[in-house]
């Protein structure tokens, strides 16, 4: 059973443009559980966790490609995703209703129930 946070969508557009974002603020998303080596900016402790999109940050070159001197194009949509501490740490969370925001690229996210 997942624990999802409350999200108020921002009252302003993304600070950087996003051509065709797949998700919108408020959408429930699950972080992928990829194990590939390389330069990955999606923290291990969030993989497989479900949160809500808090905002769209904009489109950016993929850092996983930039790290190896490639273009990272086409740009990928970057989202700020909000998780509850209960969702991340389970019963070990000191205050399960507290939340954590992390910026995660679209190719690490899939639609989730919620």
């Amino acid at each position: 059973m997942t624990s999802l946070p409350h999200v108020d969508p921002p009252a302003f557009p993304p600070p950087y443009p996003s051509a065709a974002p797949r998700f919108a603020p408020g959408d429930a998303v699950r972080v992928a559980t990829g194990h590939a080596p390389g330069h990955i900016r999606t923290p291990w402790y969030l993989r497989g966790r479900v949160g809500r999109v808090e905002r769209i940050c904009g489109d950016f070159a993929n850092p996983e490609e930039l790290a190896f001197h490639r273009s990272g194009l086409p740009p990928r949509a970057l989202y700020r995703v909000r998780f509850t501490m209960k969702e991340i740490w389970g019963e070990r969370a000191e205050r399960g209703e507290d939340t954590l925001d992390a910026e995660i690229f679209e190719h690490w996210l899939e639609a989730a129930e919620g």
């Binding site: 390389g38 330069h39 850092p63 996983e64 930039l66 790290a67 190896f68 001197h69």
Partner: peptide, 8 residues
């Protein structure tokens, strides 16, 4: 290079 190249 980019900061990603440095971090890698």
């Amino acid at each position: 290079y980019t900061v990603d190249g440095l971090r890698r």
